[in-house]
Amino acid sequence: MIKVILTIFKITTKHTLSLPMPFHDKGEVLWHTSFFAVLWGIWIERDNRIFRQVERLDTSPWASITGPFCYYKLALAFILYAWRAVLFELANWRKAVFGVFGFVGYILKGALALVLYVIGDPITSMIRGIETAFYTIRSFYSGIVAYAPIPELTTIIILASTVLAISEASAPDSVSSQPYLLTISGLAGYTVVRGYISEPFFWTILLCVYGFSRFVKKRNDVTSALPVAAVFAAIGEPWVRILAMGSFLALAIAHHWKKLSQGKKEDEYEDEKGVYQRDVPLPLLGVALAIGIHAAAKWAGYRHLTWMIV
């Protein structure tokens, strides 16, 4: 009987120890202990069947200690084996989960590479455009703060405002009726002064503005010539400014005289058109804003230096 049990122990130990034991070497000790506990329980059950009708009085301390343990040794052995199997399965599941996540990561990387291959160039161009616009605005702002010519800008505001006042006195609503043309002419004047466009192209733009206002919108001569005269008075040479303002003043007087000769008073003209909303053109607002930014930056720098000295 004992030889049979030992043979079974060798066979089971040979097959079970090939699996990973919990706690490494300690797992082998637990497995041997549980096997011998099962063997001891089988031996006790065999003695009880053989000596069933015989009264025995076992008063040894070892029997009182091992007695309760022998009733639960089989359950303990299965618990240890199940624990080892659970740990082994958990290790396999962990590898499987990591494999699944790695596969999903490779799929996402491939999808991202495909998206960047298809729309990578437009996105890159858009980012570069945004960066260029940002640095352009920053450079423009820094130039205003550091190098804004306040006397020249003030002269531009005064002369352009004079031309606008002459136009409004002769043809009411001549400024507010064409804000986009005034803005285009102002931008054209700024770009030609900065050297971004050539003078022939600048003259072409002003000619197109005048033709659109006169022949497409069917406006009067004063209203049509206002954007051109305002730009020449603002950025031209001194003799160009005098010629432009003098010619526009003569045109405005002629238009007003013609209107009065037709028996149409200014009040009646305003009653027909209604109340006019006289808005300041955007180029003049931009010039005034540049002056304000330069003055504010200069004042802030002065206050900062004063605080450092004090």
Rank of each mutant, 00 (worst) to 15 (best):
L87H: 03
A91K: 09
I50K: 12
A85I: 00
Y71L: 09
A77L: 10
G41R: 12
R56C: 03
L39Q: 00
Q53F: 11
I79D: 06
I44R: 12
L87K: 03
E89K: 12
I42Q: 05
S64Q: 12
V38P: 00
C70E: 13
I44F: 06
I50E: 12
I65W: 13
I65A: 11
R84G: 11
L57M: 04
R84V: 00
Q53A: 15
P68F: 06
L80D: 04
I42D: 03
N48E: 08
P68Q: 08
R49I: 04
F78L: 14
L87C: 02
T66C: 10
I79P: 01
W43P: 00
D47A: 03
L74G: 06
S60G: 04
I65S: 05
A85E: 07
A63D: 09
D47V: 01
R84L: 01
I79R: 02
I79G: 14
Q53T: 07
A96H: 14
W43Q: 09
R52V: 09
G67F: 05
R46E: 06
V54I: 11
L76R: 02
Y81S: 08
L90I: 05
K95Y: 09
W83G: 10
L57K: 07
C70Y: 12
A77D: 02
D47Y: 03
G67Y: 04
A75G: 06
V54R: 15
R84P: 00
Q53M: 13
K95R: 14
R84F: 02
Y72H: 09
R52D: 08
A85N: 02
K95N: 14
R49D: 05
G67D: 09
N48Y: 04
T59W: 12
P61V: 08
G41M: 10
L90D: 08
A82D: 06
G41D: 13
N48C: 02
F88L: 11
F51S: 01
I50W: 02
E89T: 12
L57P: 01
L87N: 03
R46L: 05
W62T: 14
S64C: 05
R46T: 03
R94W: 05
I65D: 02
F51V: 00
Y72G: 08
